[in-house]
Design a binder for these strands. Structure first.
Lengths: 348, 348
DNA sequence: TGTTAGCACTCGATCGCATCGAGTGCTAAC
DNA sequence: GTTAGCACTCGATGCGATCGAGTGCTAACA
């Protein structure tokens, strides 16, 4: 186990390195500490800390930088209750969520921008995706004789739409009655049960309203398939180019894989969605990330909820040398605020 | 005016430079040309072309690179009918648009990805935005006692939604009847005329259904404001990080402004939307761009239409040294394909 | 036993300098 | 008008000297 002094030194090294991005020397620490310890003493401690695996030396005559385990220890044991947010920042966070809610989309996008502006890191917000949602409403709006828009509102307030063109032999009228039946019979049904209920109860009723039985079944199947299809949540990015501001990514070849990964929204979603079920705030440091491209990054994520159920994730991606002391409480407050806002709106 | 030979040399220099990103020397041209001209002759011509402003020399003992006017001349006079798309590529473009249309969004996003994959440049697609669209349908779907989703379908097939929370003293029922009235009275109305018609004809009818007259007027005003508010089209990017693949942007400080600009979707929209009304394909080379951050880039845009009316823009952003000979016909085909697809669906 | 001053040592960063080579401009000959 | 030849330019590359921040170790000290 580390002595108190070692912890203090480790902590100072991390704090310094986070700020400067340059290896921290013994003199620097010696000067900053108030327990008048000489550089030589610090050096001894630093050598010990390196042996224990908490520090690293980029090269023989350089200062020390925290190792991955060093950061891990810092995050797990040295940050307890250390919130480095100014009162001003906290009120700014709160005021962000006092606005009227407009579209869900806009809230998510704005949260991402806010986070990235405040931190100079890259923010990721996974749009709300509710698993045990039910079907609220289904509508068909005809655009012309052969095209219509199918609208679906979920109980979580999300709206999905797709354009459908009528197959030969099916009129818009028929399609409208199909949708009317579905709406009447299925509204309130959990999404994942839609198919079974549709097949059980509705098929024959639908076919009564349509001339072509084959087409009727086919069309019904298509609509149901769409309804139950994964409405993959969206990914909102803020400040992706902030990555380029970080000294460790000044080399294009370092930055490129990360930025490219960020463009693959599907992968991003997959990577973050896995943290969702544990309601905890998660910190993934460097190699702790499963994603290869993020091995030089850290990823801090928090889950936000509606009525206590996890529905989405907000997160920050930055270099391993991340300002955890700021980022962690920031995400904490923000996910709380977002949860409260959404809960107020979408829970009865 | 340039001689035929000068044009040929200019053309070869551009072609070479586009490929290699390195200044082109006289020997290179001399070898490639079949009219057995020696390097010295080419050198003379190149000196002339430089004096005329079509070429530049990065430094005294280097080869030549095209100047902005050089590119301009190349694009305007040397590319006529020169389509360097393989037959395979053309069929790939066509097949991209034979799929079923799902959501408009997906089409736009996929077009952007397709373009960026095919070119290694950054693709931008402005989602369809129709100006003289009419209101097709308005719906209110209640989520609970105090929250509902307001849906609007435009005649162009686009769907907009927003969450509304009931003010004190207004019930969901009342709101529903308000929306019903609006729907009955306004559907078919051009968007820009909604406010005047709403105020003229509807205000007093609405107030008959609501207890609180003040609230009624206020609510009506809010809904109308939302309806007529700019439904700003969306911006879809593809391969933004492709920018980093280009040698001219290997330096982070060169790439950063462009990538940051691309993140500001509103600015991107503004910059591209201006080209929309001219149905022509537009080429903006380097400094021809109004946007400062794009002074080292070229922007090629094409408009796509529905029923002959411009509704959106697709474009490519790359270094000034862009493969115009490929990019221009590519955008031409693609905008044509997109226009045809959308027209087939959305025009009766 | 823990702390500290002193000192030799290491190693990246920076600078100057020589070298190399692609490519030019110019001149003279064809 | 075209071309061979040649001196010249200038970025790129490589090498060695120098510099300095920071270390590890030893010996002295409290």
């Amino acid at each position: 186990m580390l002595t108190d002094r070692q912890m203090m030194i480790l902590r100072m090294i991390v704090d310094n390195y986070v700020l400067s991005a340059e290896p921290v020397g013994s003199r620097t620490i010696s000067k900053q500490t108030d327990l008048g310890l000489s550089a030589a003493t610090i050096r001894n401690e630093m050598a010990d800390l390196e042996e224990l695996g908490y520090l690293e030396q980029p090269h023989a005559s350089a200062g020390r930088i925290p190792s991955q385990t060093g950061y891990r220890f810092y995050v797990d044991h040295l940050l307890m209750g250390d919130t480095r947010l100014s009162g001003q920042e906290i009120t700014r966070i709160k005021s962000l969520f006092t606005e009227r809610i407009g579209e869900m989309e806009r809230v998510a996008q704005q949260t991402a921008l806010f986070l990235s502006n405040l931190t100079q890191y890259t923010a990721v917000v996974l749009g709300p995706q509710v698993y045990d949602t039910t079907l609220k409403n289904l509508q068909l709006v005809a655009l012309n004789d052969h095209t219509a828009v199918l609208l679906m509102v979920a109980s979580s307030g999300q709206v999905y739409n797709r354009t459908v063109s009528m197959p030969e032999g099916v009129s818009i009228r028929e399609m409208e009655s199909l949708v009317r039946i579905l709406n009447a019979r299925l509204s309130g049904t959990p999404m994942y049960r839609i198919r079974s209920r549709a097949l059980e109860e509705i098929t024959h009723e639908v076919s009564r309203h349509m001339r072509d039985y084959e087409e009727a079944v086919h069309l019904l199947d298509q609509v149901v398939t769409w309804l139950e299809s994964d409405k993959e949540g969206k990914v909102y990015l803020g400040g992706a180019t902030n990555m380029l501001l970080q000294p460790e990514f000044r080399d294009v070849h370092k930055a490129q894989p990360v930025l490219t990964w960020l463009e693959r929204h599907h992968d991003v979603m997959e990577a973050l969605r896995s943290d969702e079920s544990t309601l905890q705030l998660q910190v993934r440091i460097g190699g702790e990330n499963d994603v290869q491209s993020l091995h030089d990054c850290s990823l801090v994520t928090a889950t936000y909820t509606v009525g206590g159920l996890p529905v989405g994730v907000i997160g920050l991606i930055g270099p391993t040398r991340m300002d955890y002391a700021r980022v962690i409480p920031l995400l904490g407050h923000l996910s709380k605020g977002l949860s409260d806002l959404l809960t107020k709106f979408y829970v009865n």
